[in-house]
Computed example of a mutant assay.
Amino acid sequence: MTKICIVEDNAEMRHALSLIIQLTDGYSLEGVYENAEVAMREIPTRQPDVVLMDINLPGSSGIDCVWNLKQAHPKMLFLMCTSYDDNDKIFQSLESGASGYLLKSDGPAKIVEAIADLLDGGSPMSAAIARKVVASFSKIKSDNPSVQSLTNREMEILDLLSKGLLNKEVADATHTSVATVRKHVQHIYEKLHVNTRVEAVNKYLKR
């Protein structure tokens, strides 16, 4: 059973996210918190696999909350679920330790899909967010030896990942299986000397 916690100050959104988790097979709702201070105190006692995190919270922000929890619990996964789509908030969230970034307007199905991708090692992002991330990166530098070591197929997969595609979407786009995509992603990690997709994409696009 995958354990989920939610940090959200809006009562209506908190209720909606809670229902999404409770109605999804294989997920267990471990805790729901209205602010970062309570979340930072209580979440370590729950040890969730994934935390859905809002940014605009009373008191400390969701970004600060992620940073503090990630330092103490590096294996814990954080998915920002927010209304903010400005570049500063996006990159601050990723730098704090978040592995994914969704807009609340994406809807329930996307949130469930994003959690599954997060657990599978992905870095799910809303399409609008992925475009902003890619637009903020400079072009690949030809003198990057680690990127040059990638095969054409690995470059193709990494390019798709940089656009925010999920494993299944990459598999569909390349006419391969999800297992094959996972194997390629692992080879990409090894060649680029990284541990996450965010790091791989950043290195590929020379953020």
Rank of each mutant, 00 (worst) to 15 (best):
S99A: 15
V133S: 05
N144M: 13
I129A: 04
D88W: 14
S146L: 12
D88N: 15
N144F: 08
L158H: 08
A130R: 01
S99F: 08
D88L: 15
I129K: 08
A130W: 04
F91P: 11
P124Y: 01
S149D: 11
L118V: 06
A127L: 04
S83G: 09
V134C: 04
N144R: 05
E95H: 04
A128S: 15
L158I: 15
S105H: 06
D143H: 05
L150I: 09
F137H: 15
L119H: 02
G121I: 05
I140A: 04
I129W: 01
D159W: 01
Q148M: 07
L118I: 04
I111F: 03
M125R: 13
F91E: 07
R131A: 15
L103W: 03
P145E: 04
Q92I: 00
G100R: 08
D106G: 03
K139H: 12
L103H: 03
V112L: 06
Y84L: 14
E113P: 07
D88H: 13
A135V: 11
I90W: 05
S96E: 11
D86R: 05
G121Q: 06
A130T: 02
S96T: 05
D143N: 14
I115Y: 10
S93W: 03
A114R: 00
S149Y: 04
T82D: 12
Q92R: 11
L118R: 05
Q148S: 09
D117Q: 14
A98F: 00
G122K: 01
N152D: 12
G100F: 02
S138F: 07
D143G: 08
G121D: 14
N144D: 15
A130M: 07
L158T: 13
S105K: 15
S138T: 13
K110N: 07
Q92D: 15
T82A: 06
G100Q: 06
M125P: 01
D86G: 12
L118W: 05
